[in-house]
Write a protein that binds this DNA or RNA. Sequence first.
DNA 1: CGGCACGTTGAGCGGCGTCAATTTATGTGG
DNA 2: CCACATAAATTGACGCCGCTCAACGTGCCG
Lengths: 252, 252
Amino acid sequence: VTTVLKAERLVRVDVHSAEVPVLCLSCEARHKGVCGALSAGQLIELSKHTRRTTLHPNDVFAYEGEALERYANILMGVVKLTKMTRDGRQQIVGLQFAPDLLGRPLNPNTSTTIEAATEVKVCAFPRAIVDKMLASTPELEHRMFLQTAKELEEAHELMLALGRKTALERVASFIWYIGTHIDPEHVGQPVRYFALPLSRTEMADFLGLTLETVSRQITKLRKLEVIRVTNNRDIEVPDMAKLKAVCDTETR
Amino acid sequence: VTTVLKAERLVRVDVHSAEVPVLCLSCEARHKGVCGALSAGQLIELSKHTRRTTLHPNDVFAYEGEALERYANILMGVVKLTKMTRDGRQQIVGLQFAPDLLGRPLNPNTSTTIEAATEVKVCAFPRAIVDKMLASTPELEHRMFLQTAKELEEAHELMLALGRKTALERVASFIWYIGTHIDPEHVGQPVRYFALPLSRTEMADFLGLTLETVSRQITKLRKLEVIRVTNNRDIEVPDMAKLKAVCDTETR
DNA sequence: CGGCACGTTGAGCGGCGTCAATTTATGTGG
DNA sequence: CCACATAAATTGACGCCGCTCAACGTGCCG
């Protein structure tokens, strides 16, 4: 229900400097995110209107149907995209990780509610400025397109799980998904020890289950020695192949 | 007023029609599809390598993981995008209608199997030619991006159905979806009489159900007088609002 | 007419949801 | 540091929605 809480002011940058803004220097989005498509000059122009913000779990960035007047680069943390039926049933339709960009060109209205799952740091800039750069920088649109295409593929994968997988397979698939996405430095290498970014309730909303069922499947995976659970959210995967096998069991 | 506009559009004469290839003249894709982004010269260039094809139900255009060496514009009919688990459980993750484009730039590999649901006519062109035009024609990429973004939104909608809706709601949602997409001339106006492009089995694969359950829900909708079924595939919707109400029942 | 594909209907069962109790983590003030 | 409160997660009992298996139309075509 709360919106953006804390806003940090950006460090001032010399307008006439051809250098990359200080804040951008160590920013991951400049390497793998959309900002990588921008020149030093564009980064400076953009940084004049940039505002970094921290969101706390369940802080809402934008509501379904709302017009986004700012794009936002995720610098840290996990963001969930949710939809709801009129009577309150909720579905998480996607997760976003650093350095994903929130907001799309050509249509400012978001079709999902965008909210923080974990603590999240974003770098936000006004729509108009980015849209102007889009016209002259094809590479920027390429990157946005690439992200959207990737989101669509992941949506398809989740749809297979929602429509055709058992509760156990869905939970295993989710753990696999997190393991292969949570580390921004992942080069396809899944990590074997990580913290789940979602609560049991949220996992249920992601997987089309109830929190009780999710909990039961987790204890089942624990007893099958596919995972170890240390502090509810902390997961260890001794053997990734074993986990992968459960995601798509031959003998259901 | 709408009918007048519609009629006007149908008889509209293209100023440069002399330069546009004959095949493109009456093609819907040139108006609302991606070809609308191309100049007469580009259309001529493209038409030299164009091949029109007819696909029959269940003909496969490309298999999951395969590299598409041709884009294809849907001129007529419905195409289904499917995914499968290793043990053969199938999920339809999306439907494509005229004038949608099959294939995406930047990544030739398709993540879903692409196959005809109904009889389908496509206009196919080699990847290389289109990709070259993409570099010099931003509008072309805009349109592709727009379609992908739309696909993503529809995927999200389906995910809500798969994860959180009852069997009855899913079937009603499907009928609503078809009613608002089957007519290429739809300007948001849902039609009340149409043929379902999918068999019961395919509807089940789309909705994460079994064919028996789909069948039962259809008879239930019939008894509730939400729909009329004439020849199994032919549906009449007396009151669209009534159908919409079932899609998202308050009292589940 | 018979064969076949497709759809409908029925009977019974099981996986997951519902409701509720208990345990475990997290935080707060004395 | 320990009671205490609150939220989050686990576990159990039971019921229902949708799956499974099977029989039975129905329409189409040779």
